[in-house]
Each structure stands twice: as structure tokens, then as C-alpha cells.
Design a protein around this nucleic acid. Structure first.
Lengths: 205, 205, 205, 205
DNA sequence: CATGAATGAGAGTTCATTCAT
DNA sequence: AATGAATGAACTCTCATTCAT
């Protein structure tokens, strides 16, 4: 590999990374709607045009950042393994994975929701992320019902409601609407795990 | 209509009501951010100037509409009466009250949340509405704990999480992010009531 | 009619007229592509927003001005009356009508052609104007052929070519591509009338 | 291929040719104003920088392509030889030469005209091309007048008008403003030759 | 009270050109 | 000679708000 090649590929790559990071900062500070492309570029120490040579526009930027969030979530949240016989532990692990991923990507998650309220394209991305979580949750509820717990609960509806709870409780406790974030991570995890465990009727003995 | 009657419902009052109603329609159709003052005025059959003689601006309009939402909610959601001995029935009634109020004011509730993501003034309004619900919920959890249920649950945290669940499940099922609203109201009420009942460990029977 | 009505209607009207006139000046000076909306508004002594409350954009402005050109042309260029027995005089009148209308609207005619080179919407407008002229011309050629002149000439093709001649000769002589306009109007009219008369084989005795 | 041969057609020369050809294609497709340097470079399979090492810019590119057009036209359009005694045949040949050259270079001719409407530098190039044609035409009219034809016609003005006719009729029939090109070349040549012959009063026979 | 024409700051986006490699 | 990432001036268009009538 020549010197030119070594230096050239990374230059664009470094710009792209700088812009992504700057976008995260500016969006965290100002919100997505108020984040100006010019500010993001400046924060990244790049020209405006550079932004547009890496992203088709503000929307494409958010799509890219949302995809980071989605893929990390997908990597960390998995249905229980075949012979898993400690469902509460698995549930706790899942809540932890969501909480940690959510807080790491919080400004992007908020931006995505904000954009989804307005724009059908982002609504679709959001629904896709949500659907992944609902699928895992519904599988857990069906497993519980197979063991005789919580008969009569509609698994998909209940899963939707529980995902909404986890999602917006995490939203709230990670800073919510201009409030201070919770300090005690363990309390978050314990509260949500307890509520879900009980809600689906899993009697821990 | 006599002169006196006309004076009771003067032109100014009729304009204000027409503008409120028009605003609800336009916000429902376009969302708050995209709703233009000119469209609201036109929908109301009034001039733009008339809008500004009744509301200080778009923000003040939303504040007024949000106050309608909040006050209706406050009127319908009450802590259990002294000797109330059917907590599940009361919970069901509370969920029904929220669901009905929410669906009636859905566009305003969404607008309020959307604005709250961006603007601290609206965040405060939102938190106030939320706090009302959390207070009632936390009271119920403490009552349950007094009877020996769900020991060890942090009442305020759990109440927050459950309110988030109700709120965003209702959001989701009333149309969510560009999806079809659920058709079966009873399923909504039953699912949420069941989940909450179990979550706080209230053994029915 | 109340005072308010009298004053209000004209205010918008005066702005619209001021913007049209300003547009003509700026387009004449800079050409259509280089004409900035901000300059037109300033030249009219109005705000940019005012421009956009009267025209949907630069394109709509040009369409409006082009329609003025087209309608004036249509009003002044007519096929010969039934018993017209002095075709050369009528031809001369037609050329004069075109020349005078063209020079009066020259910047707009140029702008329209410039835009038509790029934009199919304007190409259609241009073709419509051209078609009106070709129709009259072709009618004249057919009349000449009925009298035995210029046998074998395709009337539509010949009419197209002659209209092209008149159009671009007028373009050229009214200032062309950064040249001085011709001073002698009579020479223009005589030259074009002679060429057309001979071209279609009308022997003036 | 030997080293010597490679040197005769060096890399730089091949790049220049590829860029010229790519430019013709992109300009034909998009028009000159909308043709982006980046697209031309890509179409040529070269880098943007390479474009700028061969042409000073977009304008210089158009100048070069226009010069190709002009020089081919100049090579094919010649005044009649001394003892030429079939002026109609010569006229027909001249029209054919223009038509064939024009259609071959049509996108460039259009681009040149488009640029000339805006830019005095290109207006000068256009006028130079036009002047060559007018000179030949005027010479022919003077020859006709020497034989007693079309007395009283201003040779230069008439030549200008007839050149305008040929030019824009060819423009029109080769595709004009987003129309289908004419299919019958012979009809073009015959119509234009007839009209010119008659216009300058050359009695055939 | 009602009106609606006027306003203009401010946003996103484009693309010819440069220059370090 | 060739490259293509970086640049930023320049442009169009939006819409909440004002105020003369």
C-alpha cells in the first residue's frame, strides 16, 4: 500500500467520524430539530460542504446515527437460549443491556423519536427498533404462559406495553424532559425487573 | 337572539372558541411544529391578526390547549375514596379515564410532548401533568405495601415506570407513530389493568 | 365600499405591480438565471417575503411575465380578415406588431427562451407562443399557394422557418447578444417583409 | 505498443480526449448550466483534479468545444468559387453543410447560445461564428443584385435575417425545445434552400 | 375587535474550484 | 500527471409576528 493510499482513505474516514461525534454533541445540546448543519460542521472543525459529502443531509445523518443505536441494541438484546432456566436473570440482563445502550445513545434516541413524530420515514425506523424488543418480550410472556403463569394475557399487547414502560422509564430516568438523571443505576434495573417479573406473573419463590 | 344574549356570547368569545377548535384540527392533521398560524386562522374562518388578539403566539395557544387536557385529566383521575375496598375496580376506572381523555386530546398530548422535547417551558407543563398521575399511583402502591404486597418496591420509582407504561401504551394504541389505532378499547383497558395489578403484586381475590 | 376596502385591495395590487416592474428591470440587467429574488424585492422596495406572497417563486414570476408577453402578442397578431386583398400590407402589419411587442418585452422573451433551454415547463410555454405565429404564417402560405404561388412548399415547415427568421432577426436587431440595437425600425420592417414576401413567392407587381 | 508509440499518445492526451467526449455526453444529457464538473470527470473515468489540469474551468471547456464547432463549420462553409455558375446548387450545399455540422454539435451549439445569453465572452464567440455565415450570405445577395435580382434589399441585414432563419430552423428541427427531431433531412434542406432562393429573388431557370 | 399584507432572519443545500498527497 | 476530499459563498424559500387600516 502506497503512502498516498494509506493517508487518503483515512482522511475521509476521519472526517466522517469527526462529523458523527460532533453531531452527537450538538444534537445532545440543542435537540435534533434545532441542530444546525453549520454548527455540526463547525464543531467537527470541518466545512459545511464536507458534511454534505459524507451525509446526504440532516435526515441521512440521523438515519446513520439511529442505525448505530439499533444495531448495538440488536447485538445486546437476544431471546433466551434454549435451555435457559433462570428467566429472571435473563430479564435483568436484557433490561441492563437496554439501559446501558439507551443512556449511551440517549440524544440520538430522543432525536429519533422527535423526528418520528413528524416524519413517517423515521417513524418506520423507530417501529423497527421497537418491534425487535416486542418480539423478545412476547416470546418471554408466551414462555411464562406455557408454565401456567398469567393466563389470559394477550402476549403481543402486553409485550408492547412493557416495552413502552422500559423505554420511557429509561428515557425519564436518564434525564427525561430537562430533569436530572437518576444516580442509582441499580435502582433502575431492580425496579424495572421487579415490575416486569410481577407483571407477567412470574412468581419468584 | 336578544341583544343581551349576544352580549353573553360576544364576538370575541366565539372567535376564541373557533380558533381553539381549528387549532386542534390543524395540529391533528399536521403536527404542532408544522401547523402554521395562518392555516389555523383560515380553518377558523378568521384573520391572522385575530389569532394574535386571542393568543400571544403559537406557544401560548399550545399552553391553553394543554391546560384543557390537564384539567380534564385532573377532574377524572382521583385517588381512591376513604373506604374504597375494590382497588382493582378503581384502577380499571383510572386507566379508563386516562385512555378516554388521552384519545380525546391525543394531538394536543403529542404536541405537548413534542414541544417539551425542545422547550423547557413545555417540559415543565408535561412534568406537572405526569406528577399528578405519579402521585395517585404511588399512593396506591403504598396502600398495597401496607397490606403486605410487593415489599421492597420503591413506590415513587415504580409509579413513574407504570405511568410511563400507561402513557406510552395509550400513545401507541391510539395511533402511535403513524400506525392504525387499536379497535378494541376493552383490550387496552384489560391489558393495562392486568399488568399494573400484577406488577404491584395485588393478588386478585 | 368602505375606506378599508378601498385602501386594502390596492396595497397588495401596488406591491404586485412594483414587483413585476422591478423583475423586468433586474432581469433585463442581469438575465433571468442570475436575477436574484432578493434583488428584485429590493428594487421594488419590498421585503423578500412580499415577493413570495405574490409569486410562488422565480419560475412563477417568469410564467406571469411570459403570459403578459403572450397575450399581448395574441391580441396584436391576427390572421387576415375574410376579404383582405392586400396581403403584403397585412404581412407588414404583422411584422410590425411582432417587432413592437418583442422590443417592449425583450428581456422577458430572452428570459423565457433561456429558461426553456433548461426547463420543459418553459419550453412548453415557448412552443405555445411560437405555434400561434406558425399557424398564422402557414395560413398565409396556403392562401398564396391557392393563388398559384410557391407550389411545392411545405406550408408548416416553411412557416416554422419564417417564424424562426422573424423571431431571431428581431432578437438580433433589438440588441441580440450584447450588441447595440438597430436604430432604424423601418429598415427592420422592410427587410423582413420583403424577405417573407419573396420567400413565399408573392410577386408584387 | 512500443514505448515510442505510447509517448506519441501520452496519458495526458488520452485524458484530454476522454474528458472532451464525456463533456459532450453530459452536456447533451443535462445542458451546460446543469452539467457538473464532477459528472463530466466521472463519465470520463478520471478524477476531478484531472479535469482542472486540462481545462482552466467549465468556461474554458466550453470554449474549446465551441472552437471545434466553429472550425468545422468554417472548413465546410465556403464562398462560391470564382466561376461558379450554379448558385442554387452551392446554396443547397451550404445549407447541407450547416445542417450536418449543427446536428453533430447540437448540444455544444445550444450550450454556447445559452452561455452567450449570460456571458459576454461567449456572446463574442457566437457573434464570430455568426459573422462567418453572414459574410458568405451577404456576398451571395450582392452577386444576385449584380444580376438584377432583389434590388433595394440591404445585403447585410437580409443576410443576417436569413442566417437567423437557417440557424434557428435547424435548432428547431434537430430537437428544438424538447421536441422530437425531424426525420426527413431532405425536407429540411429543400425547404430552407427554396425559401432562401426565393427570398433573394433568384429566379430558378 | 378584526384584518391580512408586509416583513426578514435564518435554515438547508449546491457545486466550481483548490491543493496536499 | 493524477487524484478526490475539502471548502464556503451564494442561493432559494418559510413562517411567526407586526401594525396600519
Amino acid at each position: 500500500m502506497s503512502k498516498a493510499q494509506r493517508a487518503e482513505q483515512p482522511r475521509a474516514r476521519r472526517s466522517a467520524l469527526a462529523l458523527r461525534e460532533a453531531a452527537r454533541q450538538v444534537i445532545a445540546r440543542d435537540g435534533f430539530a434545532a441542530a444546525r448543519v453549520a454548527d455540526i460542521a463547525q464543531q467537527a472543525g470541518r466545512g459545511i460542504g464536507t458534511f454534505y459529502s459524507h451525509f446526504a443531509g440532516k435526515e441521512a445523518l440521523l438515519e446513520a446515527l439511529a442505525e448505530d443505536f439499533r444495531s448495538e441494541l440488536a447485538a445486546r438484546i437476544q431471546p433466551p437460549a434454549e435451555g435457559d432456566n433462570d428467566p429472571v436473570a435473563h430479564l435483568h440482563g436484557t433490561v441492563r443491556a437496554f439501559w446501558e445502550t439507551y443512556t449511551a445513545h440517549r440524544p440520538i434516541a430522543m432525536a429519533l423519536f422527535q423526528a418520528a413524530l413528524t416524519d413517517a420515514r423515521f417513524a418506520a425506523i423507530w417501529r423497527r427498533i421497537r418491534a425487535d424488543g416486542v418480539r423478545v418480550s412476547a416470546a418471554r410472556i408466551r414462555a411464562a404462559q406455557a408454565l401456567g403463569h398469567c393466563p389470559g394475557l394477550d402476549p403481543d399487547r402486553a409485550a408492547t406495553a412493557l416495552c413502552a414502560m422500559v423505554e420511557f422509564a429509561c428515557f425519564e430516568w436518564s434525564g427525561g424532559l430537562h430533569t436530572a438523571p437518576i444516580e442509582d443505576d441499580q435502582l433502575v434495573l431492580r425496579t424495572l425487573t421487579d415490575l416486569m417479573t410481577h407483571a407477567i406473573g412470574w412468581r419468584d419463590r
